[in-house]
């Protein structure tokens, strides 16, 4: 799992290239992710990287930027 793949996934989900320019962007504050986007994200993580993140482990405060999401996934690999 390359970090670039994670960023590409986020670009697909958030439909915005800004993620590549600014991987520290707060996805919730900028309106790029909401509760429904979160669900979508967890499905895609499972599909693309075969990592299953239980929704009950998903804390908005800790999964709010592309870099942090990449970090969380690296921990779980």
């Amino acid at each position: 799992m390359e970090k670039q793949q994670i960023l590409d996934m986020l670009v697909d989900i958030c439909e915005d290239d800004i993620i590549l320019e600014n991987p520290d962007i707060d996805l919730f504050e900028e309106g790029l992710l909401d509760s429904f986007g979160t669900i979508n994200l967890l499905v895609e993580i499972d599909n693309r990287f075969d990592i299953s993140v239980p929704i009950t482990d998903f804390d908005r405060e800790e999964w709010n930027t592309p870099n942090r999401i990449a970090g969380k996934l690296a921990e779980r690999q």
Binding site: S35, T38, I55, T56, D57, F58, D59, R60
Partner: peptide, 8 residues
């Protein structure tokens, strides 16, 4: 709803 653990 924003914190799924609390929701469930």
């Amino acid at each position: 709803i924003a914190n799924p653990k609390d929701l469930f």
